[in-house]
Design a protein around this nucleic acid. Structure first.
Lengths: 366, 366
DNA sequence: GGTTTTCCCGCAAACGATCGTGGGGCTGCG
DNA sequence: CGCAGCCCCACGATCGTTTGCGGGAAAACC
């Protein structure tokens, strides 16, 4: 009842007797094996500095007691968790719906396969989710983070880096494309690691292909302009036209959100504004599929009346009617590169970035 | 250069001066705010037992220093991590390809929205991945686990429960359907929480519907028999036929893996074995879609020559030609229930299970 | 056989939080 | 003016590891 009795009973475990309650700890194992805590730790971590007999005794004690090391305690001293996070700023539907994410994850997994690192995937779209993820990330819950699908001037990467967490971006941050007025800011940005496909080049090639096919009224279905990938594919479209000496007409540009439905809508809008269109460049295959459907509704033959080029080279692009000419980006390789960069940064390497090439896949739609 | 100098510089911080290296700790904040560690902790955790002035001073010190609490240290003493895991024993392609998983995740997220709990998703198919996940799970990396898509007699759930980790299963463990000879084992199993749809009932309804339509040569495309969901849907098919006084012909049963391709193959096999088939029950919509394609190839009209019923009511079922009659299972609700059960168990509640209802969605294919 | 080297291994100090206990200062009442 | 009561807050033990240091025993060398 008194504090002393209480303290005596609970706070000071009698040294000779292992506590049976709860999961076993290092020194219960040590006690049973007749060695010190340090030795058990060394056995668990595979240090060579321990005699065969001691090792055997410890191993025996470990599985008699069913001992499992406590990650929190270990992380506290080693400052590592042996796990990394992939955070996607999109809704579940989009993450699971678009094949892009599957490819990235596959690439990351394969690169992480021969590592101790465990990959944890989180989706964070709503502000509440984002804040929660941020809280879990800012402290030592993972050793590094890969960020996918950033919108606008998302402050998350800089925030995390400032906290000392290695960050690798999938797709370059939108701000890096914007005006360089805030030098200070962009200087900070250039410290960030990212992996990106050559979206601008890919779009140039796609539109160039349409130009080669003698198309002159080339419309674009652009992606969201708050993401770098949306902006640079549109830039590539503009550049290709300008290099060919053609002007860019704003009414030949419609904006979608990479979804099939938005591609369908865009085509209707485009043709309502200008029926003379003879080619369409869609900034994603999903939008191209929607466009295809809309074109059929409008009675346009593809590619005879209207040629169509997509972007991404997702699996369904092969199965549309007609099969879709599109720009291939090596998604899985991008995932692998992201993981590779992150592992390097966790290992102390300086931040660096990777740009992967894109190329045209010629099928029947153009 | 020498080890001593090194130790002296790094290991023994001079007590009066806050270390500027690394991230700030609780007592650096305390020092700067002129209060004790405990007070800072109370402010961070929102305890009311602290005066407004002290609170203000602490807050000021916190954001001047950019203090962020260390999760590992906190977890070590609280025994909580405020995060839960969803582990799926499937390949990335399947997880991202099948709409089922998206629905489950959506349900879980929505149930977790008003919680502190952060959801982390992991995929573990290969033995190496499984072992790694197991290691990360077995101690204090998460407060609870949801397991999806278990195959065979997977020992993982029992293992985790034995380690004291709350586990909730999506779909009931395959063994619970098997013979009850190993009572000991099944007794242990019944301790597990799970959420499952009434797959048997759903299959009975589906086949019953075909019988109502005067079909008598009803074939089945079954799912993998190492998963409970595969077994029970087949059981439902058998029961429906038996209740109608019809025998079950084994050659009218083909086995797939829930994928579109396997459904296509199955139909070819079935019709090769018995051309008199006038209806097909597919244990998943994806397989039904494959079946649809195969039937078209064979020149069979649906539903006139062959009626078809699927299972799952995925989104594409609405858009096939003809639209697919199928059995609806409330996937999102299942996810919500899983999360709800897990939260309850983490809160100390006893293990319990939930069965959700299925119902037929009549469209044009039957 | 003595001395040096080589191994092992126990000891104890961190790591950075939480939380119970007790003390000090202020208020209020007699 | 004195004492009881109540807030606040400082203190320190504790969670379960890792890891450097040093000691002691065995082995190797002359």
């Amino acid at each position: 009842m008194t504090e002393c009795a209480h303290n005596g009973a609970v706070n000071i475990p009698s040294p000779g007797r292992p506590r049976s309650a709860g999961r076993p700890t290092l020194d219960e194992v040590a006690l049973r094996a007749g060695v010190g805590r340090g030795t058990v730790s060394r056995v668990v971590n595979g240090s060579p500095q321990v005699s065969p007999e001691a090792r055997a005794a410890v191993r025996k004690a470990i599985d008699e007691l069913g001992y499992v090391p406590n990650r929190a305690a270990r992380a506290l001293v080693t400052q590592r968790t042996d796990s990394v996070a992939l955070v996607v700023s999109e809704s579940e539907d989009r993450v699971f719906g678009e094949p892009f994410f599957a490819g990235i994850v596959r690439g990351i997994s394969s690169a992480l396969a021969d590592t101790q690192l465990q990959l944890w995937l989180a989706m964070a779209q709503s502000p509440a989710e984002r804040e929660r993820v941020e809280h879990h990330l800012t402290n030592q819950h993972v050793d590094g983070v890969m960020l996918l699908s950033l919108h606008d001037a998302d402050p998350l990467p800089q925030l995390l880096e400032r906290r000392g967490l290695p960050v690798v971006l999938g797709g370059r941050p939108a701000q890096m494309l914007a005006d360089d007025e805030r030098l200070n800011f962009t200087a900070q940005l250039s410290q960030l690691s990212y992996v990106d496909a050559d979206n601008e080049g890919g779009a140039r090639i796609a539109v160039g292909h349409l130009l080669d096919r003698r198309r002159r009224r080339i419309a674009a279905i652009a992606g969201p302009q708050d993401m770098a990938v949306g902006v640079s594919r549109l830039t590539g479209y503009r550049e290709a036209l300008e290099r060919a000496g053609l002007g860019v007409e704003e009414r030949l540009i419609a904006y979608g959100d990479f979804s099939e439905a938005s591609g369908e809508r865009a085509v209707h809008d485009l043709f309502a504004a200008d029926p003379s269109i003879d080619a369409v460049f869609a900034a994603s295959d999903l939008m191209a599929v929607g466009a295809l459907r809309a074109l059929r509704t409008l009675g346009k033959r593809v590619p005879d009346d209207v040629a169509l080029v997509g972007f991404d080279d997702v699996a369904i692009a092969r199965q549309t009617d007609p099969p879709l000419t599109t720009v291939h980006q090596p998604v899985e390789a991008m995932g692998r590169e992201m993981a590779r960069l992150l592992v390097a940064r966790i290992g102390g390497a300086a931040s660096s970035s990777v740009m992967v090439e894109t190329h045209l896949v010629r099928r029947a739609s153009a």
